[in-house]
Simulated scan of single mutants.
Amino acid sequence: LTDAQHRAEATPLLSMPGQIDDLGELLRFWRTYRDKRNQYEELRMRAYAEMPAQWAHVWSGNEDARLTVFRQHDSASVRRGLIGEIPQTMWWMDFPLLERTYYQLVVNFDVFGNVSHQGQTRLYFDLIRNGAEINFLRLLPADARQAMLDDWYEKSGQLKLRLSYTDIDTETPTGLQLHGDKPRQAFAEQLLGPHGLANAIPDPINRCRTSRCYREEQPVALQRVEQALSRLTNRLAAGLQVIGHLPEATMLRVEYGENRREVYSLLRNRAHSNVAFMFGEEHRYQPRLDTLTVYPGVLSSYPNFMFSLRAEEVPAFVVALEGVKDREAFERLVERWGIRRSHPQFWWYFNDLTRYLRETEPVEAGVLDMNRYQNL
């Protein structure tokens, strides 16, 4: 064989599942694609070891360079920019990962495919996610990577780490200067800082570092609203017990001035020991570690509930949320400010969310799905 043929045989052929939908061969397909991907991952790791990560490798790009993904149970929403508090996990996607994500979830995905097709798609995207996590770890100091990975794959996740994924590089140093004992925090602060990369938009409600936890350009009435709402962010459900009663996507409609209103999304961030398996999520769920993200706008296509109140009522609303200790207290709060399906003006309030979208995001606006609206 020629040298070129030898190299071709030694190089794993990356391919994606889903074309063959034999249910009985699902696990065999999974092992085949997993092994090919892991061979590629090992080659990539050796190549990257010759070129430590630098800030110059992080694409500053256009408005799509930084994305925040919110997962709401069986749906998700993606927003441009970096929204919310610094998350536990981050992905750094290179072009091969982006390309495989597109072909796996868009081009080759069959909405009407059988269980084998759906299962192969889900299992293979698990490898894409792991690849993006490994990419991100390259940005951190070598001696901090394994501990960070173990934090993402607790308990049963350790089994998945050993059986399905390749080892990570814990020797090649990073080219980033990340000081202190919290490198992920240090990386995020540099990314979000005044000299950070493009599209790292400020979020004073969730990432308040001063006494002014509101958007400076807003009217005074909304500044007071956002100052009060900022007290709900970054608090664990163990201390803010109302989180345990809230659904995943709650809309807060605040009226102020003359016939004006602002809408905020209260998104419940569900904590898990790991997200490495298709089934058994309830066994990995850690509800006491849940938190809230509060952000202006409608950040979900499937609102689960809505509160509506005047701006001057928001401080009392926040105090009431902080005081919820049981179902009865939450019921009183819903009775006072909640918009249930049985509310006489329910449809006016729900359709007002669509009107708000058309006013604030006319290009992205659409009809919201109320199938998951709960009658708390």
Rank of each mutant, 00 (worst) to 15 (best):
P12Y: 03
P12V: 01
G18D: 03
I20F: 14
I20P: 00
L23Y: 09
L27V: 12
W30T: 14
W55C: 02
G61L: 00
G61C: 02
E63R: 08
R66H: 08
F70V: 02
R79Y: 10
I83S: 02
E85V: 11
M90G: 00
M93V: 10
F95A: 15
L98Q: 05
R100A: 15
V107T: 10
V107L: 11
F109W: 13
D110R: 12
F112D: 15
F112C: 10
G113W: 01
V115A: 15
S116D: 13
T121W: 02
I128K: 04
I128Q: 12
F136T: 04
F136P: 05
L137Q: 05
R138F: 02
A144M: 08
R145N: 04
M148S: 11
D150N: 07
D150H: 06
W152Q: 03
Q158T: 11
I168E: 01
G175D: 03
G175I: 03
L176G: 03
Q177E: 11
R184V: 15
Q185H: 10
A188H: 08
Q190G: 08
G193I: 05
P194F: 00
H195S: 14
H195T: 15
G196V: 12
I201C: 09
P204E: 15
I205T: 06
I205N: 07
R207G: 12
R212F: 14
R212A: 13
Y214N: 05
Y214I: 03
R215C: 05
Q218R: 15
P219H: 06
N234P: 01
N234Q: 05
A237F: 03
I243Y: 02
H245M: 06
E248A: 07
E248P: 01
E258C: 02
L267V: 04
R270G: 00
M278P: 11
M278S: 13
Q286H: 06
L289V: 09
L289Q: 14
V298M: 10
V298P: 03
P303Y: 01
F305D: 00
F307Y: 15
S308M: 07
L309W: 05
R310H: 14
E313L: 11
A320I: 09
L321P: 01
E322S: 08
G323P: 00
R327K: 14
R327N: 09
L333F: 03
E335N: 08
R336C: 05
W337S: 00
I339H: 04
R341T: 10
S342F: 07
Q345C: 12
N351C: 08
N351D: 13
R355K: 05
L357I: 02
P362M: 04
E364S: 15
V367A: 10
M370N: 08
M370Y: 09
